[in-house]
Design a binder for these strands. Structure first.
Lengths: 338, 338
DNA sequence: CTGAAAGCGCTTACAG
DNA sequence: CTGAAAGCGCTTACAG
């Protein structure tokens, strides 16, 4: 049906190998021949068959992107990671196979061992990520967005959640706040091993303790009415916090409405610091001071590192975890506690 | 490196063709032989090479999903369409190539003519969609999620936006409202040809006129502070509307916060009907009566129709546009105008 | 019920 | 600068 390299060769009056070399640029071709080939390609509307090329070169020019999410996950934030990965990949000539199969391990094994992809990008990484098993068997390099305890041997990129927590606590401490409330990701995130949840919470607690601040922590919910119930509880606590730290997307999205409904003004009655990206803040019209999570940067850096592995060179440094520095963006939702 | 069908054949003591037939199930194999092959496959951890199989069968078992979005698009809603498409595809043995290349036409041409995909799903379809050109040249079947004027010859699935508008107007009309305000998608959606924008607005205007209701329409924004400015304008209009119809994701997300900030209660001071999905409402904690947009249903039906085309059978009916019926979900944000 | 062989459409040493 | 040929790992008529 579609034109093949043989059709092009015939029309241009050259051999198939010459057409191939013209395509790949792997050896020099006379100007005249190249022109004839180019003409033939355009006349026939020829595009090399991807399967055939993959078979011959053992390269697909496709990267696999593996998502993972719970039934009740707050999905809107995920696209922030997917899009930069896709863009960066394409800018370097790679397409993206997006895998959302609930059978995580099977999907990784199937797509890598059938050589559908040249490399792997893991999203929503958990502390003990089951996908790393099949990934170790795979011949393709992989990169994780997130942090896994069993991630030795892999490149990974994640926000420095500990530092993010310290920045938030420090910021409020400097303003004189002594009683903080922290709303964390939902309990199930801890249970399934989302390490960012602990890393942030533990660092916040430790930092607060060092300064002699009180801090109460509360599992957030991802749905109403749970979201409001948790906020009610957190704010009506005996310690009556003067500042709120939010590490929970769904709660952040609902907060403006909640505050207004309860007649709480920020920063007037309550200082607020959230952990979220610029994009997320824009989408949800969040007027809160934030610690930037930089999904765009994480996604793009991860892809670039993966491409480095693919390019090989042998002299690459050993795979390791890298942490992106959080940045505090002041949007005026905090003020002095006095 | 990886085991091939030849390795399996050798280990099982049969020919490569027999292994292949065991794999595809296209001819009967003796119980004994099948068992030996199965054993060999497991021992070697064999998975058929996808490129080789694609080359031999002209089938990749991959579907292409093509996204399209503007720089300032409100992205969070998009995943609602992507995930069901991915799930439905996988449930039928297909993987998903997700394409976000800004060169829309080039990406469609490249991926179809190189036979990377067996079929095409177009998301974010516009009224005159440039991707349909290369798609007509393609040998693969395609399905659109959305509606395109130049879409003849293609299956497409979309919400019946006209009916959705009529439902919203009728609902408010029955409650006695005579003055409505409608916030539409941003102006650029009209400019680039998002037909759902016109279809909804035109139907709303016509229906309101028929009942002798007044309706003002306003282009929504997708970012603050534009969002609030538009709301201010819409509500302070001379006609002082008693009800608000929202066909704008970003405005919907910001509305709870806006209403509370302005001290407007709903439905006390203002009746509100929005066009959004159940999922979207949950994610953003939206307490508004809605016309359900059913992205899950649209995505899954689109994939199923595409798979029908792929299965062929010849006796398929001609491709056509299909419209999903909207459903009104009463969440109590409307009340009698009297 | 099974095998030998051709073919899918590319790439790439090997030769000249 | 170019061509003939082998090979990538499968599938599938063709034979028996």
């Amino acid at each position: 049906m579609a034109a093949t390299i043989g059709d092009v060769a015939r029309l241009a009056g050259v051999s198939r190998s010459t057409v191939s070399y013209a395509l790949t640029g792997k050896r020099s071709i006379s100007e005249d021949t190249r022109a004839r080939i180019q003409e033939a390609i355009e006349e026939l509307g020829f595009t090399p068959n991807a399967g055939a090329r993959a078979l011959a070169t053992s390269q697909t020019n496709v990267l696999g992107l593996y998502l993972q999410f719970e039934e009740d996950e707050f999905a809107p934030a995920m696209l922030q990671y997917v899009l930069p990965v896709s863009s960066e990949a394409r800018e370097h000539g790679y397409d993206l196979l997006m895998v959302t199969d609930p059978d995580l391990e099977g999907a990784v094994r199937r797509t890598t061992s059938s050589a559908m992809v040249d490399g792997v990008v893991l999203l929503d990484v958990t502390f003990d990520d089951p996908r790393l098993g099949p990934l170790r068997e795979a011949t393709q390099p992989a990169v994780l967005i997130g942090y896994a305890r069993n991630g030795e041997g892999f490149d990974s990129f994640d926000l420095d959640f500990g530092e993010a927590a310290r920045m938030a606590v420090d910021h409020l401490g400097t303003l004189g706040h002594r009683d903080l409330a922290l709303i964390t990701p939902p309990r199930h995130v801890y249970e399934r091993g989302g390490s960012y949840a602990w890393r942030f919470r533990d660092a916040a607690i430790e930092r607060a303790a060092r300064y002699g601040m009180r801090i109460t922590t509360h599992y957030g919910d991802s749905r109403q009415p749970g979201i409001e119930a948790v906020l009610d509880r957190a704010l009506s606590d005996d310690s009556s916090p003067t500042a709120l730290i939010l590490h929970n997307d769904a709660t952040l999205a609902a907060l403006p409405s909640y505050l207004n409904a309860r007649g709480i003004s920020s920063p007037g009655d309550l200082s607020v610091v959230g952990l979220f990206s610029h994009e997320f803040g824009q989408a949800f019209s969040l007027p809160f001071t934030s610690i930037e999570t930089s999904p765009d940067q994480l996604g793009r850096q991860a892809v670039l590192q993966l491409l480095k592995r693919l390019a090989g060179g042998g002299s690459l440094e050993a795979p390791r975890a890298r942490f992106v520095e959080p940045i505090l963006v002041d949007r005026g939702s905090t003020r002095s506690a006095l």
